[in-house]
Amino acid sequence: MTGWPEILYADLRGAGITQFAYVPDAGHRVLIDSALADPEAYAIPLTTEEEGVAMLAGADLGGSRAVLLMQSSGVGNCINMLSLINGGRFPFLTYVSMRGTFGEGNPWQFPMGQATRKVLEAMGVIVLEADTAEDVAACTKAALTMVFQSEQAVAILLSQRLIGAKAF
């Protein structure tokens, strides 16, 4: 079955993205597995999300396109490292799988989940939000232009309406 994650992976590869840096999350499982299975792409496991922010800047210095896959809890780990993106005007694209919002059953996820958009915007990252499979494709098309043509920093939030709330 071809769902939105498979289409998203094809769209990102089609846009020339070759580095997929990630801290695993269930919402990114298909993307991560696809990158691991792709001999032409790097799947890069991180120990913390801020590594990924710097890695994307390094990829850009070398002329490669990269994306950071993380959960909303990881956005907080990126805050100061986003100074590099902001100050260097590096293109920056991240997909954030949301927790702590629609239907969340783990109370620990709420503080960061509710602050995710504010934190990103405070550090100069433009936030788009995808609630449906159609939104993912539309946001991706828009973000690829914003990031790699206009050299902006963009986060696409994959909402819990889209990926579903984990059962507890």
Partner: peptide, 17 residues
């Protein structure tokens, strides 16, 4: 600035080049 960026940035660059 961006203390801690040097090594992850170099990894991204090394994979790109």
């Amino acid at each position: 600035g961006a203390m801690g960026a040097a090594l992850p940035m170099a990894i991204g660059l090394a994979l790109a080049q």
